[in-house]
């Protein structure tokens, strides 16, 4: 097995993008899941549909819509440009693409975790003097930790594999936006690079297995501290 300096850059970038996308999505995903599980409000169905939409849309479609929104002529793109922020064809665009595509997976897992909390526990905390925010932090957050860990691992792994939306929004620029899947795509198009492609596949597998192991380890730890 042999890795070129470009491959190393792609691996580091992949990890960086996956970490950033997960970290960026966590608070939003937690808030969305909390709204869906614990609050009743008008337009809840709309929120659920919006959150789940990226799961059903082809990533290429998501990438294209994001490009329209954030591109030079997009309204958000123009707004950001006037503030001096340029996102597309940078590694930040890869983060946004990954975040949007992985978001439904994150919310689903956190939601499952929150739905397993007995609502009476939350009510009990309120009658014991906890405000809704206090109750959120002292009861809901620790008890949905398993869902948060599961969702984060899933999202992290999904981000590592993100291809369709990323190639449209961030491009495939070696050293700048080329992540592992994009690098493998390049190698795969030339017949002489099979060994290089396989090396990166192997790295992919190693990272994924590591993520899964870490997830198992953490969720067992949480089970123990939650008294299960």
């Amino acid at each position: 097995m042999e890795l070129t300096p470009e491959d190393i850059t792609a691996i580091v970038l992949s990890l960086k993008v996956a970490f950033a996308a997960t970290a960026l999505s966590l608070p939003l995903g937690f808030a969305a899941a909390w709204l869906i599980v614990f609050r009743t409000f008008r337009g809840k169905v709309l929120l659920e549909v919006l959150v789940n939409l990226p799961l059903t849309l082809p990533p290429v479609v998501i990438g294209y819509l994001l490009l329209l929104l954030l591109g030079k002529n997009g309204w958000l793109g123009q707004l950001l440009a006037s503030a001096g922020i340029h996102l597309i064809f940078t590694w930040k665009a890869a983060v946004i693409a990954s975040a949007v595509v992985g978001f439904p997976l994150l919310v689903r897992s956190i939601r499952l975790g929150m739905e397993s909390i007995d609502p009476l526990l939350v009510k009990a905390s309120r009658t014991l003097g906890a405000s809704w925010l206090d109750s959120l932090l002292s009861v809901i957050l620790p008890l949905s930790m398993k869902g948060i860990i599961a969702g984060s691992s899933l999202m992290f792994a999904r981000s590592l594999g993100e291809f369709g939306a990323t190639i449209i929004l961030a491009g495939n620029i070696p050293g700048v936006t080329q992540t592992i899947p994009l690098a493998i795509y390049d190698y795969a198009s030339s017949p002489s690079s099979t060994a290089m492609a396989l090396s990166l596949c192997f790295v992919s597998i190693v990272i994924s297995v590591a993520v899964l192991f870490l997830h198992e380890l953490l969720s067992r730890k949480i089970d123990r501290s939650n008294g299960l």
Binding site: V139, L143, L228
Partner: peptide
């Protein structure tokens, strides 16, 4: 008034202890 402002505690059918 919100529940925490009312200061009315409840003992439920099940103990509802926080498992964590």
């Amino acid at each position: 008034l919100s529940p925490e402002q009312r200061r009315i505690a409840i003992v439920f059918q099940q103990a509802m202890l926080f498992p964590h």
